[in-house]
Amino acid sequence: MSDETKTEDKPAAAEKEWQPRIIAFVCNWCTYAGADLAGTSRMVYEPHVRIIKLPCSGRIDVSFIIKAFEQGADGVMVSGCHPGDCHYTAGNYHARRRFGGFRDLLEFCGFDMRRVVFSWVSAAEGKKWADLVNEAVAKIRELGPFKEYQKLLAEDIWRKEETNSDRETG
């Protein structure tokens, strides 16, 4: 198959500029506010995290994490209020039970769990958020792109053709 040549010449050009792509699913009341605080306090932290805010960490499903990887993410952060602080009383307690399941499920299926970071960040913990992001970015830089999943993306029946025709013109 010409797959090898394909994967070879694409990253070859892209390798230099590769930057981690991290998607963060965060709760609106704590982590998002925490991230906001990090911003308003002018803390400088890595810009490679794209935040998607949800009403509560209890809304976060394993599908979100998989979808993020499906769309080419190299890492995912999941974060909500500390236990006891949920805006909806118990959303994060329920979430915590599920997160344990997500973790075990993904790990079992061969996901490198260093790519998925779970955390509690309160509205006051701007610093903690900035540190977590820096830490995650550093870790994923070290791990490199999520090649295994991105191989599945390359198998995608329409993207495959795109790489071919891109090569044609380039």
């Binding site: 006891g84 307690y93 915590r96 344990g100 970071v117 779970f118």
Partner: peptide, 11 residues
């Protein structure tokens, strides 16, 4: 849920 559910993997 229980307040003391394990959360060893959560930072």
């Amino acid at each position: 849920f229980k307040p003391q559910d394990p959360e060893e993997f959560i930072k």
